[in-house]
Design a protein around this nucleic acid. Structure first.
Lengths: 197, 197
DNA sequence: CGCGTGATTGAAACCCTTCAAGTTTAGTGG
DNA sequence: CCACTAAACTTGAAGGGTTTCAATCACGCG
């Protein structure tokens, strides 16, 4: 066991206002797991049976396209969720890898947890609905960015939105997330420095 | 009134297995509205108070970026939903325009409808959850496509996925959806014809 | 018929990638 | 703690895919 059950509770209280009674009923559906830097949380092709809540550390999810190129889908630092949401519910093989960028401790939430929590608490239902809509909003912004921003704008948008990550994530991963090459990003940064940004 | 209430029912039955009793309670939260070709269903900046279910016709949603360029977010033919999901729940001003590409009849679902339906029916909750996850899955695919496909692949992917739309939607709109210029798409098509595709 | 919109085509320009080489940084074992 | 090595980052030159701009063609509709 990685952490005491008490820690779960704090997280559920943070996530939504869980009662003691609900908490006792949900406890069996939660697991804590730790991953070392570079370790894989999920492999492409495996079924993603859990949603991962990052307690500490940093995860990334990415796919590999036909030409063997990596594309980073998402970063998840402390307090964020990670998972192949599109295949979690449908129990399809995941299209993504999930890997630890730092030593990371995650809470695993199973589909049963979700079902049970939704059954028990209207509060959780609202919270979950909120989270899904937030996710949609974020994906939509990403699409808009990919369609209308050039490399420089994308990078500026990234450091504006995820400033804390720019220091923890290697540059080539940021490039991959932005849909440009590492060389491309290097040149963008050089140009920004020249304009003494 | 555009259509008889009876038509609503069929749609709710299609969407999920609504009972007669539930249906009677939900009826007040639904409206039907018709739009002529090119008419606007929603303007950027307005609050999107409804989700739109397309009964007949075809809608598009799009944003306009800083340089004045249109970017098509989504098409919605019969049986599809349309709406600014990211701002519907949060009642924020919409970032998108929604416009009718053909004469279109839609059912307007208010937030109250959603709340009420979720309260009444576990069936609806599951359905709604399913729909949100499907939406996430679709957005994720779009991002992967934008990051790893060139113009030709994007177009081939489009006609494979939405073949019925290629005949109803003007070419420049498809180009906008794919994130390329109309000229670019024209050249892609020429090249595909040359390779007698 | 003529006008406006959409589609096509060509030439030049641009942004970004690719490839290759060099430099810096970070981690490991002696 | 230094030396060594691999990985990350930088830089340059060449090339490719797409855009931009402008002109032309095709078509549908009042």
């Amino acid at each position: 066991m990685d952490t005491s059950p008490q820690e779960y509770k704090t997280h559920l209280q943070n996530i939504y206002h869980v009662t003691e009674e609900e908490y006792q009923k949900l406890l069996p559906y939660l697991t804590v797991k730790s991953f070392k830097k570079d370790e894989f949380v999920l492999f492409q092709g495996d079924v993603c049976n859990h949603l991962f809540y990052v307690e500490k550390g940093l995860l990334r999810s990415y796919s590999i396209d036909d030409s063997g190129k990596e594309h980073i889908i998402q970063f998840a630092p402390e307090g964020w969720f990670m998972g192949d949401r599109s295949n979690f519910l449908f129990k399809q093989p995941s299209e993504y890898f999930i890997q630890a960028i730092e030593d990371t401790r995650v809470i695993l939430l199973s589909q049963e947890f979700n079902d049970k929590a939704e059954e028990l608490s209207a509060n959780y239902r609202h919270y979950n609905n909120f989270a899904l809509h937030k996710h949609i909003s974020q994906l939509q912004n990403r699409i808009t960015m990919l369609m209308s921003f050039n490399a420089e704008k994308r990078y500026l948008h990234f450091i504006e939105t995820y400033f804390n990550l720019t220091l923890r994530v290697p540059q080539w991963m940021i490039a991959s997330y932005l849909g440009i090459t590492p060389e491309g990003l290097s040149r963008v940064r050089k140009e920004l420095a020249r304009k003494n940004f």
